[in-house]
Design a binder for these strands. Structure first.
Lengths: 262, 262
DNA sequence: GACCGATGTCCGATATTTCGGACAAACGGT
DNA sequence: ACCGTTTGTCCGAAATATCGGACATCGGTC
């Protein structure tokens, strides 16, 4: 529609179309991660701007290394077991994450609701660990997906060390617009942050999802700066009493994860 | 030995030392996985036979993509967060593994001992999921590490669909030698397998580790073939009573994971 | 049965990436 | 302060990996 669509979102290659295999592979993996589903080789080639013959060649190599796996029997590929091994090595190698796994698993199991461990990545919010609760209808974000800070409860904790105008500069303006088009007022957002700091936790309801409430508590470093959060994702109609219990649970876990205590 | 060695399975380098970037990257990641620790770039280059300048170039690319991370400030690198994201995508995409995560997390939490989910990879045993228990001294194998089948309790279940001589052909002879040099008698091993099949579980003690007992139960496909196991790793002095309870727990979990039931 | 689109393989040419080696800077021991 | 070792960057040359396009298959549709 319309006339002059510019339409270049990619804009990667500079001179020629030729690229290194490794760069093609990175684009390939990134693409699979964003699609989050087994994908046909030809589609990957098209969507990443990789020549078809090159993509076949690379996929063969990666399948052999178990980085990728052929799925189903239709010609789709997706991540293979090697990624799981390498990812586990990463989790084990980061002290805070290793401890957080224990906490998240524990509170998700005992409380029975989805629990998460989150941090910032640049100016976006990021779910690092996610442990689904016992509910049938799992409410849970996906690991490794970046989300605008204002959309989340945790986001209100993760920037609470910044001054007001610092925050305004830090968060891209468009990130205050929710998926449904509503706009979060910056003042209210800043108020939330202030209240969160004094209360030691945050609660948000019906932000990204109309029927979901998020409860989050801050993990702080020795200097008191919020470096991560631990949180519950629960149905909005959860009783106030139950929510209070979860908040206490979160605060206790967050405290245990905060470096600089015995 | 003897004369007639036929095939080289490796057969990688043919003429020159030159290799594709992607192959060097695969070797790099494999090396980090086997070392299981942040490693200096020069060391990786030496140990993988990659030219130093090439390795630096590749590492820079991979660090930018978050596949790798510079650690500590000394010049070591290790896996980065991207691996965790891709690995999580893999786990979520495999039906049996996704269900197994729930079971393993649940029984590890409720029983308080290390629980694992294991399969075969070729002719080796492989830990796919590992959830540490509440013990101080964590007894737990590492994810993604291959182990000879006879060294493990689960191994005795995973080959129980094969005939005796089929098993003898399947398992490399050297795999019957334990880390401490002791040799597992093939007959006893085969007996173990038979007993396991009738009992519906396996117990082994002081196999790889003198003070450790493993309890394992089979996950079977619709045809009754053992496709995976779920198991506990506990101290050898755990009371018989407690072990019986764990065996029941394992059998129940394994049953839930076995495809072909409501 | 002819047509169309998608899948996977193969091949030769050339633009490019790998490689070796040189170099500067940082480090550490004596 | 001296010297040997290690880390990280840079550069030109040449071996080769990427690319485009052709081709053979397969499956579904009209």
């Amino acid at each position: 529609m319309k006339g002059g669509g510019v339409a270049e979102k990619q804009a990667e290659e500079k001179s020629t179309g030729r690229a290194r295999g490794i760069d093609r592979v990175i684009a390939l993996m990134e693409h699979l991660h964003s699609r989050r589903a087994p994908t046909r080789i030809a589609d990957i080639a098209r969507d990443t701007g990789t020549p078809r013959s090159t993509m076949y060649e690379l996929v063969n190599t990666l399948v052999e290394a178990r980085w990728l796996e052929l799925r189903d029997g239709d010609g789709t590929v997706y991540f293979g077991p090697a990624m799981h091994y390498y990812g586990s090595d990463y989790l084990d190698s980061v002290d805070l994450i290793r401890k957080a796994r224990v906490e998240v698993a524990h509170i998700a199991e005992t409380v029975g609701e989805t629990a998460q461990f989150c941090t910032l990545d640049g100016d976006k919010y990021l779910v690092v660990l996610n442990e689904p609760g016992r509910r049938m209808f799992r409410i849970s974000s996906e690991i490794g997906i970046k989300v605008p800070i204002p959309w989340t409860a945790s986001g209100r904790l993760l920037v609470d060390h910044m001054a007001a105008d610092e925050i305004r500069r830090f968060i891209p303006p468009e990130d205050f617009v929710l998926p449904d088009g509503r706009r979060i007022a910056e003042d209210e957002f800043l108020e939330d942050i202030g209240r969160a700091r004094t209360q030691g936790y945050v609660r948000t309801t019906a932000l990204v999802d109309r029927f979901t409430t998020c409860l989050a508590a801050p993990v702080r470093d020795a200097a008191g700066r919020c470096i991560a959060t631990i949180c519950f994702v629960v149905p909005a109609d959860t009783t106030e009493e139950a929510q209070q219990g979860m908040i206490d649970t979160l605060k206790a876990s967050a405290e245990r994860l905060s470096p600089g205590r015995p």
